[in-house]
Amino acid sequence: MFLINCPFCGEREQSEFKAGGEAHIVRPKQPTELSDDEWAEYLFMRKNIKGIQFERWNHVHGCRKWFNMVRDTSNDQIKAVYKMGEKPPIK
């Protein structure tokens, strides 16, 4: 079980958190301008990487804040956590 360093609360058990899928997918500002394919790209397409992956997490049983996490899915090492709106600290 992960020990997650919530950017707002510090280290907490994974059971306090909820995973929220891939990070840095920005909701289009003008959805009506998009073709079906472009909209589908936003709506359905998600990466499933073996290795470094950028993810959204929510401290749902804590401060309820959303934040981002960089995790190596091949060994479950959490490389970094950072607040929403911040740039990823690693590429």
Binding site: G20, V26, R27, R56, N58, R64, K65, W66, M84
Partner: peptide
């Protein structure tokens, strides 16, 4: 609702 408020 919190998700949209905080992230979008």
């Amino acid at each position: 609702l919190e998700d949209y408020l905080q992230t979008e």
